[in-house]
Design a protein around this nucleic acid. Structure first.
Length: 486
RNA sequence: GCGGAGUUAGUCUAGACCGGCAUGACGUCAGCUUCCCAAGCUGAAGGCCGCGGGUUCAAAUCCCGCACUCCGCACCA
């Protein structure tokens, strides 16, 4: 399977498609989820809640997507999330001002300097376009945040570039009112917005995208004091340090050998792997890659990317950043709010370990890793985990006549509220099975002539194509058993 | 943003060099038939050929601009 086949399936079966596609001014980097995509996404999120939020007793919030300017002054995004750029007047090529100046003149102007400083150096040293020798326009800041104007005065605010800022901002209230105790995870699912220069590859690089973020607030002096560590100490993760080889190690070994800095980090990396295993992504094709200093985000002191292998290369699904006290300290300074909490009768400013998950990319990977070409049976099917399948069960009449259609509809209405069921009478039965296979429906029940006599139906299993006959009265428990979360 | 290649129905696609009724397949829908794995038959719907402009009696086709998609570069918390 490859990217194009997934794309075609996504378009044909209602997983996702370009936004505003009927208009020619549609912008790149915006995609919509269709019915199958929404269903898959909701189930993925429910699994995330089960395996991370509830398992670790995290607090989940739902914050605003538009946040005030001060938030991003404090977070550093206004200065650090923007690149100083210069445009060649002649060939319109764009360069990073600081990098080009450093390269040509060896004068170092910091990235966050005032724009006039770049212009000054460019004029003094006669810096010209390396491609065409043209002169440059004045330097500009390209900020990846979308700015919005609030109210009639258009006061500056921004669409959040990451969901975690509301978690930091809300931390004092949550900690007080929810009886917080370190370490504590606060989680959020929602949209983030980044003005990417060149969005690419549908769900993989979007300007508006879903994140599932977890910020673990912890006492920096107690990073090896983790209650649940024994639960995961034998969980195997695949670590890549120094961009060399991927080494499968248990979490216990990783901490003891110093590959991971502490038990807290190991614990959450393990939860992540256990979660992804249950999504049906092949974790044997995954790695935690330790980032070098140049690659890390401006706020991170230690960072691991959880990456998976796909047909278009390694894909980052989760950024795991040890943000230390960077965020709470700066929000404390800018807002004057107190972020210290009492832990074992000592006042501490918590540190933060972050798991920032890209949902859209995860969903793409689920599709790709589960896309199966079954040449023997001339079919394509998605071997999705039954609890993630957009449709749990197809409800089919073998033929429409002889009262079978009516009986089928009767059975369908009995289960349609509880399961994602799909009713289908039209065409040959084999064709209807194939359609269900392509959206990954794990089960199909078929109503035939025998149903009218003894109230039994056949139930077909997607992966094996085998069928068994069960009583209608057992249908509910059978489907529940087959489609419930692990 | 730069360079390259593209954009024709839900999906894939012929036609473009050489301007003249937009082709085929799959899929979809209805009916017949069959009755447990994409069978067959009949019929139907679905396109301002990415958008805008220009040349022309006439543009999917030639020219210009733009948008989008893909590849490479750059960028990427």
């Amino acid at each position: 399977m490859n990217y194009d086949q997934i794309m075609q399936l996504a378009l044909e079966r209602g997983f996702y498609f370009p936004s505003c596609e009927i208009y020619s001014d549609a912008q790149a980097g915006f995609w919509e989820y269709g019915p199958s995509g929404v269903s898959l996404k909701s189930k993925f999120i429910e699994l995330w809640r089960r395996e991370l939020v509830r398992r670790d007793r995290m607090l989940e919030i739902d914050g605003s997507q538009i946040m005030s300017q001060s938030v991003f002054v404090a977070s550093g995004h206004l200065s650090s999330f923007a690149d100083p750029i210069i445009t060649c007047q002649k060939c319109r090529s764009i360069f990073r001002a600081d990098k080009l100046i450093a390269e040509i003149t060896s004068v170092v102007v910091p990235e966050s300097a005032e724009l006039e400083q770049f212009d000054k150096v460019i004029a003094e040293k006669d810096v010209r376009c390396p491609k065409c020798r043209g002169n440059f326009d004045n330097a500009k800041k390209f900020n990846m945040m979308f700015k919005v104007g609030i109210g009639p005065q258009s006061e500056a605010a921004y669409l959040r570039p990451e969901t975690c800022q509301s978690i930091f901002v809300d931390f004092p209230r949550l900690y007080k009112t929810m009886r917080g105790r370190l370490p504590i995870g606060i989680a959020q699912i929602g949209k983030s917005f980044r003005n990417e220069i060149s969005p690419r590859q549908s769900l993989l690089r979007l300007r508006e995208f879903y994140q599932a973020e977890i910020e673990v607030f912890c006492n920096p002096d107690k990073l090896n004091d983790i209650d649940g560590f024994s639960e995961i100490e034998n969980t195997e993760i695949r670590l890549m340090i120094d961009d060399t080889i991927i080494k499968p190690v248990t979490c216990k070994e990783a901490v003891e050998s110093g590959m991971l800095p502490n038990k807290l980090v190991a614990y959450y990396l393990a939860l992540l792997v256990e979660f992804y295993q249950k999504t049906g992504i092949d974790v044997n094709k995954s790695r935690f890659r330790k980032l070098g200093d140049k690659e890390k985000a401006f706020y991170a002191s230690v960072a691991f990317d959880f990456e998976v292998e796909t047909t278009i290369g390694w894909l980052e699904l989760v950024a795991c950043n040890y943000r230390s006290d960077y965020d709470l300290k700066s929000h404390g300074n800018v807002s004057k709010e107190k972020f210290e909490v009492l832990h074992d009768n000592v006042k501490v400013l918590p540190h933060v370990f972050e798991l920032s998950m890209g949902i859209d990319r995860s969903l793409y990977t689920i599709l790709e890793h589960n896309y199966k070409e079954d040449k023997d049976n001339d079919r394509i099917f998605l071997s999705l985990k039954p609890y993630l399948a957009p449709i749990h069960v197809g409800v089919l009449s073998l033929v429409k006549k002889d009262g079978l259609a009516e009986k089928t509809e009767e059975i369908f209405s009995k289960i349609k509220r509880k399961y994602d069921a799909f009713l289908d009478h039209s065409g040959a039965i084999g064709r209807r099975y194939r359609r269900l296979d392509e959206v990954g429906a794990p089960l199909a029940i078929t109503i035939d002539h025998q149903t009218l006599q003894d109230d039994t139906v056949t139930i077909r299993i997607r992966d094996s194509m085998e069928q068994e006959r069960i009583k209608i009265s057992d249908l509910d428990s059978h489907i529940t058993k087959a489609t419930s979360y692990p």
